[in-house]
Lab assay of single mutants.
Amino acid sequence: KNAAKIVNEALNQGITLFVSDNKLKYKTNRDSIPSELLEEWKQHKQELIDFLTQLES
């Protein structure tokens, strides 16, 4: 999976991924984040940080 797909899947579940101080963060109104999503974010962390940083610049 690529970073764009992961970010879109998160958005579809009401979760916004973003970068703050070079760290991957998220915002959501959900009570909890599915563990498989958290695991996927960890596996692709640097790719996600790079992707989101490019989007914001």
Rank of each mutant, 00 (worst) to 15 (best):
E47L: 11
Q43E: 12
T53S: 11
D50L: 13
E40I: 13
E9H: 07
W41L: 08
K5M: 15
A10D: 01
L38K: 06
I33L: 06
N12R: 14
K25H: 14
V19G: 01
K1V: 13
A3I: 10
L11I: 07
A10N: 01
L17D: 01
K42F: 13
V7F: 13
F51E: 02
I49A: 02
I33M: 04
S20G: 07
S20W: 09
L52P: 00
D31W: 04
L38Y: 07
I6Q: 02
A4W: 13
N12L: 15
L11F: 10
I15G: 01
A4E: 14
F51L: 05
L52M: 03
E56A: 14
K5F: 12
T53G: 07
K1T: 11
I49Y: 04
T28D: 03
Q54S: 14
N2Q: 10
K27M: 09
K23Q: 14
N8H: 12
E39A: 10
N12S: 15
T53Q: 10
I6L: 11
E36T: 11
D21I: 03
Q13H: 14
P34Y: 03
A10R: 00
E47F: 05
Q43T: 13
I15W: 02
E9P: 00
I15S: 01
F51W: 09
A10M: 03
L48K: 00
W41R: 00
E36L: 08
E36S: 10
R30L: 14
F18A: 04
P34D: 05
V7D: 00
A4D: 05
N22W: 05
S57W: 04
K5I: 12
V7L: 06
L55A: 11
F18C: 09
L52T: 00
S35F: 12
N29H: 11
Q13I: 09
K1P: 08
L55V: 13
H44N: 10
Q46P: 04
E9I: 06
I6D: 01
R30P: 02
L11D: 04
W41E: 00
I15A: 03
V19Q: 03
K1I: 09
E9D: 11
Q43H: 10
S32H: 13
N29G: 07
L48R: 00
D31K: 12
Q46S: 08
L48T: 01
D31Y: 04
I33P: 04
D50S: 08
N22E: 07
K25G: 09
L38D: 03
W41P: 00
K42W: 12
N2D: 14
T28R: 02
F18T: 06
R30W: 06
S35C: 14
N29Y: 10
Q54G: 12
K27N: 08
S32W: 10
